[in-house]
Design a protein around this nucleic acid. Structure first.
Length: 460
DNA sequence: TCGTCTCTCACGTTTGAACCGA
DNA sequence: ATCGGTTCAAACGTGAGAGACG
C-alpha cells in the first residue's frame, strides 16, 4: 500500500538558488517518499509501537524502509534519519495503557543516522526501496558507535531527510526535504511493556522465530503468563478498557475508524494521550481522522501534528485548537496530504536564554504548534554536522534547545564529544541566520518544533 | 523496610554473511 | 566462475535479578 497518495503538490517552492548550491538547477518539487510495509507498521501502531533500546544498540523492528520517487536520476542525494520526540513527556506503562509519568528527561545527545549508501544518485535511491535496517537505537548517552540515543519511556518518531548534495561536505549548504510517517511513531523502552507488541514482534521478526507459539518456547511463554497473574490480568483487562470509552480510545476516535471502535482488541495504549486529546490537544495521534492518514505520509516535517517535541513549553500555555493534532480534523495537515517544503534546521534567530523556564508539567499535554507556524513553506538550509562532523559540530546549540540551554549544549556537544568533538565555538555562518530569518516559518519561539536540531551529529 | 518500576545481562534460538572446497 | 555446505557473528525476546526511588 502506498504511504503517499498525493504528495506531489505543494513542493512548488523552489530552493533559493543562493543556497541550493549545485542543485539549484534541479527542481525539487516532485520528490515523493513512500513507507514500505505500511500494514506492518500500522499493526504495530494500532497497539502502540515499542522499540527496544539497549546499551550496545538495538535495531528497529519494523525497520525503516522507504521508497523514493521524483528524484533527479543523475543528481546525488544523501538520506538521513533522525528521531524526534513526540512530546515533552515521559510515560509509564500502567496496567494496559501508557500514562504520562512526568516531563521528559533532558534530551540526550542528538544524532542523525546517515544511510550508508549516501551520497548516491537519484537513480540509485529510486531503483529499489531504501532500507535503514542497520539503524540502531541506544540508551547509552556515551555511545561511541554513532547509534541514535533515546530515552526509555519516551516517545519518538523517525524523520527522513533527503538532501541533494554531491558529497557530505556540501550537505550543509544543500536543500533538503523532510518526511515523517505517522505510523512510525514509537515508545522507546528497555523491555517490552505491552504483551501485544511482544507478540507482534515475535510473529513478524524472523530473529524471534524461536519464540513463536509453534516454536520450542511456546511452553515457556505459556508458563510465564500463568506464573504472572498480573500479566494475565492485564490481558483480560485489555478488552474491558476498550469498552470504557475512556480517553484511551483516542486512537479509534481520532482515526475516525468505525472499525476500530468495534474491535475491542484494538484498544489504545495511549491512555494519557487520550486525555490530552480530550482537550483537543492530542499530540501524537498517529492516526489521523482521515483513514487515509494511516498511509499518507505527506511531508509532515515540520508537520504541526507530528511535532510535539520541544515545544510543549510554549504551547501548553497557548494551545491552538484549530491545529490540534488529535482533534477530529486536527490532523488536517496530514489528511490533506499537504507536502511541505524542506524543513529548516537552523534557527539562528533565537536566543534560548529568553526561553521560559521549564513549566510545571502537571500532566498538561503538549500542544500543537501555533497555526501560524503550521506551514513551513520555506526552503531549508541544512544545518548539518556531517560535513564538519569530523572534527566539528555546529555550535549554535542554544537555538534548538527544547529544554534548557544546558541541555542544548549537551545535545550538541555531549555525545559527539566522545567521537567528534565539537569546536568550542563554531557559529553558523551569517548566511544561515539571514536565510532562516527570511523563511516564512516563525522561529522566534523556542517551543517551536522546528527548534529541534537537525544533524547535529551524524553516523554512518 | 517494602513494594514498584526500570534496567541489565545471560541464555537459547534463528538468520544471514563470510568462508571454503568441489 | 559458480554452487553448496559450514561456520560464526549478530540479532531476537525471555526471564531473573539488580538498582533506584518513593
Amino acid at each position: 500500500m502506498q504511504a503517499i497518495r498525493d504528495i506531489k503538490h505543494n513542493f512548488s517552492l523552489p530552493p533559493p538558488s543562493s543556497m541550493a548550491g549545485s542543485g539549484d538547477s534541479y527542481h525539487q518539487g516532485n520528490m515523493r517518499m513512500t513507507l514500505e510495509d505500511p500494514e506492518l507498521w500500522r499493526s504495530f501502531h494500532e497497539i502502540g509501537t515499542e522499540m527496544i533500546i539497549t546499551k550496545p544498540g538495538r535495531r528497529m523492528f519494523p525497520h525503516c524502509k522507504i521508497s523514493l520517487a521524483g528524484l533527479v536520476p543523475y543528481a546525488k542525494y544523501i538520506l538521513l534519519v533522525d528521531m524526534v520526540p513526540e512530546d515533552g513527556l515521559r510515560y509509564k506503562w500502567n496496567k494496559d495503557k501508557w500514562e504520562v509519568a512526568g516531563k521528559a528527561e533532558p534530551q540526550p545527545p542528538y544524532r542523525t543516522y546517515l544511510h550508508p549508501d549516501s551520497p548516491a544518485p537519484g537513480s540509485h535511491w529510486m531503483k529499489q526501496p531504501v532500507s535503514f535496517l542497520k539503524l540502531k537505537l541506544t540508551n547509552n548517552a556515551l555511545d561511541q558507535h554513532g547509534h541514535i540515543i533515546l530515552h526509555s519511556m519516551h516517545r519518538y518518531h523517525p524523520r527522513f531527510h533527503i538532501v541533494q548534495a554531491d558529497d557530505l561536505y556540501s550537505v550543509r549548504w544543500s536543500v533538503f526535504q523532510t518526511f515523517t510517517f505517522p505510523e512510525t511513531s514509537f515508545t522507546a523502552v528497555t523491555a517490552y511493556q505491552n504483551t501485544k507488541i511482544t507478540k507482534l514482534k515475535i510473529d513478524h521478526n524472523p530473529f524471534a522465530k524461536g519464540f513463536r507459539d509453534e516454536g520450542t518456547n511456546s511452553k515457556r511463554r505459556a508458563n510465564r503468563s500463568l506464573a504472572d497473574p498480573e500479566r494475565a490480568v492485564k490481558k483480560m483487562n485489555i478488552s474491558k478498557d476498550a469498552e470504557h470509552g475512556s480517553p484511551q480510545d483516542l486512537d479509534d476516535e481520532h482515526m475516525g475508524h468505525k472499525e476500530m471502535e468495534i474491535k475491542a482488541e484494538r484498544y489504545s495504549p495511549w491512555g494519557a494521550t487520550c486525555d490530552r486529546d480530550s482537550q483537543g490537544l492530542r499530540a501524537d495521534s498517529p492516526l489521523g481522522s482521515d483513514p487515509r492518514d494511516m498511509y499518507s505520509s505527506e511531508q509532515l516535517v515540520p508537520g504541526q501534528n507530528t511535532y510535539q517535541p520541544n515545544r510543549f513549553q510554549e504551547y501548553v500555555k497557548s494551545p491552538s485548537p484549530s491545529s490540534s493534532v488529535g482533534s477530529g480534523s486536527g490532523c488536517g495537515s496530514r489528511s490533506s496530504f499537504e507536502s511541505r517544503v524542506p524543513d529548516v534546521a537552523t534557527v539562528p534567530d533565537h536566543d534560548a536564554s529568553t526561553k521560559p523556564s521549564a513549566p510545571e508539567f502537571g500532566g498538561l499535554p503538549p500542544c500543537p504548534p501555533h497555526p501560524s507556524a503550521g506551514h513551513q513553506e520555506y526552503t531549508g538550509v541544512l544545518n548539518m554536522a556531517i560535513a564538519q562532523a569530523k572534527p566539528g559540530m555546529l555550535g549554535h546549540h542554544p537555538l534548538y534547545t527544547p529544554y534548557s540551554t544546558e541541555q542544548s549544549l549537551g545535545q550538541w556537544s555531549g555525545a559527539p564529544s566522545t567521537q567528534y568533538p565539537p569546536p568550542p565555538h563554531h557559529h553558523l555562518p551569517t548566511e544561515y541566520s539571514s536565510q532562516a530569518v527570511h523563511h516564512s516559518y516563525h522561529h522566534g519561539n523556542v517551543g517551536d518544533w522546528s527548534q529541534y536540531p537537525l544533524f547535529s551529529y551524524s553516523c554512518w
